[in-house]
Structure formats: C-alpha cells, structure tokens
Design a protein around this nucleic acid. Structure first.
Length: 200
DNA sequence: GCAGTGATCATA
DNA sequence: ATGATCACTGCC
C-alpha cells in the first residue's frame, strides 16, 4: 500500500479504449485506488495483469457470445467487469477496446496482494463494482504510477485457461516483481548470485 | 495432489 | 428444473 499524501487524475477512458494487451502491459506500475468504508483511500501498485482480447480469443468470456454475466465486456471501455469464480472468488477486470469488442484486463496482483481472488478479498471488491465506471466517485479507480521499463516486465501464458487450445499458450500475462519497486533487479534474476570461488 | 463453493449458462 | 463448468485458493 502506498502513501495517501497525494492523488492524481484517474486513468482516462481513452487509456482503456485500446487493445487489451497494450492496456494490460501499461497498467503495470499504475496504482489501484480504493476508498474503504471509513472514507480512507489506499493505493496499490499493479504488478500482475492478464489480457483478454475479444471474441476471437478462446480464453475470453466474450468468445461464447453475450450473456448476462459478460455483457459489460461488450460495452464502453473503462468500466469494471467483476464476476464470481468457483463460488467464492471475485475477479476484477476492466473493460478495454471499442464498444462491441468484448475485451478486458484481469487484475491479478497489486502491491502485497498477489492472486486475483486474494486482492479482491483484501480490498473488499465484489459485485457492487460490476458495470460501474472506473472513476473516483465509484470508490475504485486507477491512477498513473511509475513507468515500468520493459526489462522488468515478464510475460507468460495466462493462468487457468487450459481449455482455450492455442490461445492458452499466448503470452498475455504481464508481471513486474513487486519486490523490485526500485527496479534494481530484473524479473527472473532474483536468485542470481555470483559464482562461488574455491581455494586451490 | 484435490476439495470447497455457488453463480451462471446450456439443455430440456 | 437440472447438471456441468469455472480467468481460484488453501490445505493435504
């Protein structure tokens, strides 16, 4: 959780009205701002996201057509798409791209809360945000953060979408190691040590 | 490794 | 109305 001393303008609808993979990548380093019940606002750096590209993406909910649950994915960008998974975990997504394209970005990790179901539980995010815009008055929005340089961004296949055939393999999950907020280390090199020297 | 959990959706 | 599925997590 970051400090509460300052705030900045929420990420605009234009930011989200672009392809989901681009938004997912650029959301890294931005801050998710949450207003709690007592009115206090906390901010959490986004460190893990996944892109769901649209109707052609077989891992995307929108690929099976519009239903009551996923209808907001077909609507304007910059709107929350929140749904319950496995009967107990709320998944937080933000709709991306033009109207008519069912695309979104799943927020999988922020600050110290890694895991899509864990972060929603920790921040008390649930169905009440579904279909609401990502603006300050809703109590949940994004603010720009620090730019994460490409060498600190890892890309992997998405989690839990094995049913999606070739689409399960695409590198649409984006991570930055939250431990390296100072960006002093590269992702994937955290355990690197200098080779041990032995005396002859 | 796998059970828990319940809304959602297709099928009827 | 019923049954399968599920963008996960926590404990074995």
């Amino acid at each position: 959780m970051t400090g509460m001393g300052h705030s900045s303008r929420p990420l605009s609808r234009a930011f989200f009205g672009r392809p989901a993979d681009r938004v997912a990548r650029e959301l890294l380093g931005c801050r998710l701002a949450v207003r709690a019940g007592d009115g206090r606002v906390s901010r959490h750096m986004v460190c893990e996201t996944e892109a769901y590209l649209g109707a052609h993406d077989l891992a995307c909910h929108g690929s099976r057509g519009m239903t009551a649950r996923n209808a907001v994915m077909f609507g304007p960008a910059g709107v929350w798409y929140v749904y319950l998974c496995y009967g107990m975990h709320w998944m937080l997504n933000v709709v991306t791209g033009p109207v008519g394209v069912p695309a979104a970005v799943l927020i999988r990790g922020v600050g110290g809360h890694v895991g899509p179901g864990r972060l929603t539980r920790a921040l008390s995010i649930d169905k009440r945000f579904d279909g609401r815009p990502t603006v300050r008055p809703t109590g949940l929005w994004f603010e720009p953060g620090r730019l994460v340089p490409p060498q600190f961004v890892a890309k992997t296949p998405r989690i839990g979408v094995g049913y999606a055939g070739a689409w399960a393999e695409k590198p649409l999950r984006f991570l930055v190691d939250p431990e390296t907020l100072g960006f002093g280390e590269r992702v994937g090199q955290r355990n690197r040590r200098p080779p041990r020297r032995t005396e002859a």
